[in-house]
Design a protein around this nucleic acid. Structure first.
Lengths: 192, 192, 192, 192
DNA sequence: ACTTAACCGAGACGGTACGTCCAGTCTTACT
DNA sequence: AGTAAGACTGGACGTACCGTCTCGGTTAAGT
């Protein structure tokens, strides 16, 4: 039962919509980007959008944040080194023009709708949490940390710091930023 | 001649508007709160709002974040203790019903308008930065930290973490949260 | 008891307001002329206007239609000649830039407010009716007309025709117009 | 391919809007009737009104003056009789509650906007002018009038008189009015 | 070949908020 | 009491967008 009756959805429309969102959100920002403009840019009817996504937030999330899920788990041999790589991954993910323009409004919409709010942890944070858990397991095996590090708290700290700096304040990340953040975090959770 | 010509602005209208904003933003959320509804609730014409504030973001900012500027500088004798108090001040500021409801949309609007974006550091962060600077000076005098702590980075980390947890994820702060955050931060920046 | 207590009204303000109305109504038209703009142009507070006139209609009426009340009663020796002069007086009165711009909106406001509507006959038409009555009395004395000419009907016909042509259609009056109208009217009411 | 792409316009919305205008203009008058109230009464969004009409004047014109275009050309055998019928047609057209309430403000708006002003002759007057032309042709064939009657002038006189009496002064038309006007006009233009 | 059913672009639909403008009133300090 | 200035409530304006609905027409799978 893999096929449904009727005409199948046009994959080119799907791709054209996501491309239009990426362009328009970078040009205009999240709030100023209307779905009507997306439809026009993509050469698509508005229904074709609403048939696939429930609203602006879901659509922009998929368009902007679906690439880096495959980021590799860092393994540099030290906790600080691993965290530096991981924070740099976050910075890279949040630094594209589309992400910078989309993030504040996107998270505002997610936060405002309770059904979406519940999905932030699973959608945004879960991939990074898995990488972070592996990093901590290795650090524990090296006796650098205790067994009871609060992964969620550290993750919220790293993500919150990066999001606040780049997404809210709109500052660009210098080459030292990832290491500066990682150094404090690593020292903060190491044993002793 | 300190008085301007014409009828002076009505302070009661000012107060009624801010009270209406605080109520409505807590009831409806930032995006769903219309300035027309604010005017109706306050018993005020829309012009009276637009005469004093340039838009929703400026208005809500003034209504929701103008109380805690007078928060005292903590002085517990230890860096971790001081940071715990300071983080708790942030948590308290971000935990009122109006602040929880207003923050994501408010910061999204500030981030989207470049003229407002520049004001986040000065308007939101400056009071906390001053307290944090005093805390670090005392810690340095106690030889707990070096002289070159990056105050902005730590501040962004503390604020970003609290804002992300409470404002974006909508989680409520448990009694241990402030100390958990402060402990990691203090260890992360201590000398040695 | 000709003097009232308190400061007497400033006659220069009165004149400045009427001058500002005449200018602004000619520039902008009746509907687009706001009393705030009149006050600013006259260098006067809005209250000074509302203290003297009850609203825009009354003000514009006084500014635009108060000059020609002293028009002389024509006496050319023939009914058609007298009517030609009288119609030309109407045309002159309705052809000033201010009158052309003010008339449609002004009469619309008069017609919409029942208390003003009752005043159109007395305010607009009474001076012309008196002149027309004299003209008809002389014509009757010359046995050109019967004794029972419906003065109001003829007056409404002359005024309505001129007002519709100039005020509503916005056409300019050629040199023959007064005589063309007067000829038909005179023939239409002569005996035989 | 005569059909345009997209959802066709809803004829019931069109009719509901015109019905709401007819009701509301009769209840409130032209100036006091807001398009927002029309939309609410018709159960329609404001966009649906602005999509079809450019403003209040165009909308009210279509709602109030679209019935009598099919009025028959009078043919009583005499000029005065024909004119009496024609004037009565004008009176009937201007005497409906909606027309009485709409006319002054409507013509004021038409007169104020130069693009609309040009349409008064074609939209309001053309149907009556055609009937009047036929009446004059017949009168000329009967040798009652010369060949060079100024149709526009007589039409402006008849319409102006009726409009001024009913529309501006707000007087109701007695049973003799049409004949009184027609008698003067007929005598005024007859040969000899 | 024919039916069925979901798809498609286009754009109209009801509804809601926007930010501006004006009417007519009110409140200052000053004359 | 009158004055200039300008703030006040209230409400209409015309625009923009949301998310849904309605057309005519297309594209496959199932019969």
């Amino acid at each position: 039962m893999t096929t449904r009756p009727g005409r199948p959805r046009d994959e080119r429309a799907h791709a054209a919509i996501l491309a239009a969102v990426t362009e328009l959100v970078a040009e205009s920002g999240y709030a100023a980007m209307s779905l009507g403009a997306v439809a026009a840019r993509a050469g698509v009817g508005k229904d074709t959008i609403y048939r696939r996504w429930s609203g602006k937030a879901e659509l922009v999330y998929e368009a902007v944040f679906t690439a880096s899920d495959a980021a590799p788990v860092p393994d540099t041999g030290s906790l600080e080194g691993d965290l530096t790589v991981l924070v740099q991954q976050l910075i890279d993910e949040f630094s594209t023009p589309a992400a910078v323009a989309a993030l504040p409004g996107l998270l505002a919409d997610f936060a405002a709708a309770s059904d979406l709010r519940a999905r932030i942890r699973s959608a945004f944070l879960e991939p990074a949490k898995q990488r972070l858990t592996v990093v901590f397991d290795r650090a524990h095996a090296r006796r650098q940390t205790g067994p009871d590090v609060d992964v969620d708290l550290v993750l919220d700290g790293l993500v919150g710091t990066v999001f606040f700096r780049l997404g809210i304040l709109g500052e660009s990340a210098g080459p030292e930023l990832a290491q500066d953040i990682a150094r404090i975090a690593a020292k903060g959770i190491e044993s002793r």
